[in-house]
């Protein structure tokens, strides 16, 4: 399967900070979610646990009414991409991370082409989802596209 990159919508991306987020996890049937793991919800929706007091949620469910005191929700406008095919081959040219260390379902934060990026590591044959600060979105998209088009390593494989 050849490598392909496409932009995804980051609507409904929410960053939750604060104590006692168990109820939010429970609401998404993700109480047993481990740290730095994510769970797919409906299509293009997920919940990721980034810390004891930190969640990243991409969901159409409105949480604004269910937040307790001391819990803060910030809307995120991350640039999000879907990379299908042998995404590890492309990543090996822009990211030093050893993907052998991770497994499907991991939520990974790494530097890609000099930009901080988060990734949802997929099951085999599924596309990789990655996101970054929206202000770097244009740069990351053009950099990955250029690499896809010009890299002799990728075009050799």
């Amino acid at each position: 399967m050849s490598l392909a990159l496409r932009l995804k919508s980051s609507e409904n991306l929410l960053h939750l900070r604060g104590a006692n987020l168990y109820e939010v996890l429970a609401r998404f049937e993700a109480s047993d979610l481990e740290m730095f793991r994510y769970k797919n919800l409906a299509k293009d929706q997920f919940i990721a646990k980034l810390g004891m007091e930190e969640l990243l949620i991409c969901s159409e469910i409105d949480l604004s009414d269910s937040l307790e005191s001391g819990q803060y929700a910030f809307q995120r406008g991350d640039a999000m991409f879907e990379l299908s095919g042998d995404w590890k081959a492309l990543m090996s040219e822009v990211c030093i991370y050893d993907f052998r260390q991770s497994r499907p379902g991991d939520f990974l934060m790494a530097s890609v082409a000099g930009v901080s990026v988060w990734m949802l590591l997929p099951e085999a044959d599924e596309p990789l989802i990655l996101g970054c600060d929206p202000t770097y979105g244009h740069y990351l998209l053009s950099t990955l596209q250029r690499q896809l088009e010009e890299s002799p390593f990728l075009n050799m494989e």
Binding site: A113, P134, T135, Y136, H138, Y139, R146
Partner: peptide, 13 residues
């Protein structure tokens, strides 16, 4: 190697 020079654009670019 390839040059990775991150560039940020604002929402109003």
């Amino acid at each position: 190697g390839m040059r990775f020079r991150p560039e940020r654009l604002t929402a109003m670019h």
